[in-house]
Design a binder for these strands. Structure first.
Lengths: 131, 131
DNA sequence: CAGCATCCTAAATGATACTG
DNA sequence: CAGTATCATTTAGGATGCTG
């Protein structure tokens, strides 16, 4: 076994099996970092919101995608859905502890991104096409 | 303006414009949290690697997607590509400071995910279908 | 209001063959 | 080795109409 391969294997062990294509955690990573899931986390971080409120908060999300996203997040235990048996229906969503933990990390990433955004934009300008 | 809307607007201001569909930072978020970009960050976090080494490190990535991912990351200033003019070609990739910063956040998220993975798995088992 | 079902388009990704 | 080009497939996403 070569030196590099050893180093890589150790790293893979330390950080679990995300670099292994067969590990189910990779699928979960996709779900948690999917476009709408991250934005729902941001919207729900400080609030309990209803379906239509979330939809308004997140510009551009369709009913279909929002409903699907919320269902997945509920399945994964990231949020709880509370339906009041009234007419018209009233349904609230709030993050669980698990969801709040995840949202902290997502928020850290998005905050960083918005801070560094100008730097990246400029980088893109300067980026010369590869020879 | 209603109370809830005000709260949402303040939050949106504080965290920039990610909840606004027209904000270019949303596009960048998609790029940074795309499946292969995150895994490349993990693979390159402690190493400078060649194209084929990255490909081996990340199970399941096709040449096409890896090449595209690396090009985007270079464009965004997340990594630098160093090509040695030899035959056969020798090209190395390493994270920039910007890329390393991003990788810290990604790593925090993936570490959390792998820690909590069992909890989420169990949650999924218990999850009863909605009435 | 809070969805679900259906149909359809667009984007992401994969497989394969080829090249400097 | 480090890619690119092309084609095929899968998946995400949107539009619309309908319902408890």
């Amino acid at each position: 076994m070569k030196k590099n391969a050893l180093a890589l294997n150790q790293a893979a062990t330390l950080r679990g099996e995300l670099l292994n294509p067969d590990c189910p955690s990779r699928e979960l990573l996709k779900r948690i970092t999917s476009r709408w899931t991250m934005l729902v986390m941001l919207a729900l971080r400080d609030n309990t919101l209803r379906f239509s409120e979330i939809r308004r908060a997140i510009g551009g999300v369709s009913e279909r995608m929002l409903a699907q996203t919320l269902r997945y997040m509920e399945e994964d235990g990231l949020l709880v859905r509370t339906a009041y048996e009234v007419v018209p229906p009233h349904v609230e969503y709030r993050l669980t502890t698990l969801g709040r933990e995840a949202s902290e990390h997502v928020l850290a990433l998005t905050d960083w991104l918005e801070n560094r955004f100008p730097a990246i934009q400029q980088q893109r300008q300067n980026a010369e096409p590869r020879p």
